[in-house]
Every structure is written in C-alpha cells, then in structure tokens.
C-alpha cells in the first residue's frame, strides 16, 4: 500500500513544486531587472548562489539549515529566559516548546512537516533555475515592443504586465519544459531528504523477505522494483515531452520568431 501512495507523494510534490518554483522564478526574475538597486542585487544573488552550489549538496544542506533556522527563531520568541547556549559543542539544543514539530504530535504531523520542508527546498532551488530562464526570456522580447509601449504613454508597470509578460512565455517555454523534465528526474532525491517516497518503498518491499518475518516470502526483488521505477520515469518524461511540444507549437503561432514564420509559411 505504501508503495502506491508514494507515487501519489511524488506527483503531489510535482504538483505543488512546479507552480511555487515558477512563482519564485517570476519574483526572482522581476527582482533581477528591478530599477531599485538592492532589490536587483537580491535577485541576482539568489540566482547566482543556488546555481553555483553543486546540486544535491544544496539539498542535503538546506533542509537541515532550514529546520534549525525555524527552531532557532521559535526558540528566541518562545523561550526568552533560556540562558544556555544553543550550540553546545556538537549538539543543537533548543527548549522543548521550540521543537518542530512538537515531540508529542502525531505521526502525520512529522511526515507533513518533512514533506513541507522538502517542497520548500525544491521550490527554492528550482525557483532559481526558473528565474534564470524567465530573466533570459524577458531580455529576449524585442526591445521595439517595449519602446512602442512607452511611446503610447504606458508606465513601466503597465508595459511590464501588458506587453512584456504576455510575450515572454514563448521564449521561456523551451527552458521551462527542460526544467520540468529535470524536476521530474530529480524527484528521487526526496529519498535523501528522508521522505518515504518510491525509492524508499522499492528498497523496502523488494528486499529479501523470509517466511518468518512476512506473509509473502520472496527473494531479492529490488531489481524488478527499480526496473518498474525506471519505466515509470521514462513514460512520464516521454509524455511530458510530447505534451510540451504541442504547447510550444500553439504558443509559437503568430509570433515574430523563426518558428512562427515557418508555421505561417507552411500555411498552418
């Protein structure tokens, strides 16, 4: 049973992360082209840091760091009269009330908290990639379009929302679809974050079962479980590719790009 719900976990992660990351990406890209210098620096630094650090290192590091940061903040507010150091040598000690999640909370709270941390981490990392793509897409919209908007007396905000944003998607889509496929392929990393995902269950269920411990004794089936996962991911990425290709064809229609010109010439 756990094996099947874990597929739902992966799909849920994708369903939550993709829009969140896109939002982060949009915010990051808009920040990076802001006129106000500190906001611009913030956007650029966000993109640069996450892209520069090797991938899974960021994953392993960020979850613990985020967890500790949250507990530290709760500790500061909830237990102001705590005098001991938080970092005692090798240990990270906060007062009982600041523990996240609470020690006595039920199992599902622990699981949800872990999952939320994972989603947030994925969103931050992929948000940086997405903002890089969107930033490039915003630069790619022909300059003349913005100039025309300005000539019509639109403010900066108006020309951003009415001219730039609707037109940038066709430039962003190839990068974003690449990112989506990469996101699908990075979901097994959930396993590293301690979530009971499909990798965890394939490892558990496929392992040797002895008649003494289990109702269904069998040998080592992990190979077949992982083969099934392999096929699952292959089918998933292939289906996404096909759908995204169709979407690209639709978006290209009538655009001032070589692709759009080709479609017009072909009389589609």
């Amino acid at each position: 049973m756990g094996f099947y719900t874990s597929f739902a976990t992966v799909l849920l992660l994708l369903a939550i992360t993709a829009p969140t990351a896109l939002m982060f990406g949009f915010a990051g890209a808009s920040a990076a082209r802001s006129q106000f210098a500190p906001v611009r620096w913030f956007g650029k630094i966000y993109i640069a840091i996450v892209r520069g650090v090797p991938d899974i290192v960021f994953f392993l590091f960020f979850v613990i760091a985020l967890d500790q940061a949250l507990e530290w903040m709760r500790h500061k507010t909830l237990c102001p009269d705590w005098t001991e150091n938080i970092r005692q040598g090798a240990d990270f000690v906060v007062c009982q009330a600041a523990k996240l999640p609470q020690g006595d909370s039920p199992q599902w709270v622990h699981k949800t908290y872990g999952f939320a941390l994972a989603v947030f981490t994925f969103a931050i990392v992929f948000g940086a990639f997405a903002s890089n793509v969107l930033f490039g897409a915003m630069q790619a919209v022909p300059r003349a379009q913005i100039e025309t908007a300005e000539a019509y007396g639109m403010t900066r905000r108006q020309s951003f929302w009415r001219i730039l944003v609707p037109q940038m998607w066709v430039y962003a889509l190839p990068g974003l679809s690449n990112l989506w496929i990469v996101l699908i392929k990075s979901t097994p990393l959930l396993f590293l974050l301690g979530i009971e995902d499909i990798v965890y269950w394939a490892n558990e269920l496929g392992g040797s079962k002895l008649a003494r411990f289990s109702a269904y004794p069998h040998g080592d089936w992990r190979m077949w479980y992982f083969l099934a996962l392999l096929v699952f991911y292959l089918a998933f990425t292939k289906a996404s590719e096909v759908i995204l290709d169709r979407l690209m064809k639709k978006l290209t229609y009538g655009q001032a790009t070589t692709g759009g010109a080709q479609q017009l010439a072909a009389g589609q």
Partner: peptide, 10 residues
C-alpha cells in the same frame, strides 16, 4: 529519460 539516481539503484 530516467533519473541517474534510479539508474544507479537498478
């Protein structure tokens, strides 16, 4: 088309 992580496991 498949994740390297799963390939290593398999």
């Amino acid at each position: 088309g498949s994740p390297l992580f799963i390939q290593l496991f398999f």
